[in-house]
Amino acid sequence: MDVMTKAAKRMIPGTPVFDGDSAQQGYAINAMCYSFNDDACRKEFVADEEAYMEKFGLTDEQRQAVRDRSVLGMLAAGGNVYYLAKLAGILGLNVQDLGGLQTGMSTEDFKAKLLAQGLTERRVAQ
């Protein structure tokens, strides 16, 4: 009998595709981030990050990425950006900061790159 094997994954450069493998690998860090919907949990994390990561059973790789504030590290460890965005909020980072951190640019340069593509196109039916 043939053994079922996983099909080769489609790779999209520079673009994490959060699939079942990532969801399984990243469960703990994403669960921690999901808890941050509750303000009391945000405060508990801020008061003692290590204890909070222990409580959710983060992997060593996930803990190190959080300590290093490494967004790419958190993604590589299975983090999903919809959940990581809640941690980013606690750390005072907006999505432009995250963009800069992941692309090796300053936040200002990242914003400037977006603004350089600026355009407005509008239609209103008469």
């Binding site: 673009t15 992941q102 977006l114």
Partner: peptide, 16 residues
């Protein structure tokens, strides 16, 4: 795109 090295990716041609 918020995540990955391609963060900031936009595609006006596809959007149009």
């Amino acid at each position: 795109q918020l995540d990955g090295e391609r963060a900031g990716h936009l595609n006006p041609e596809y959007d149009r």
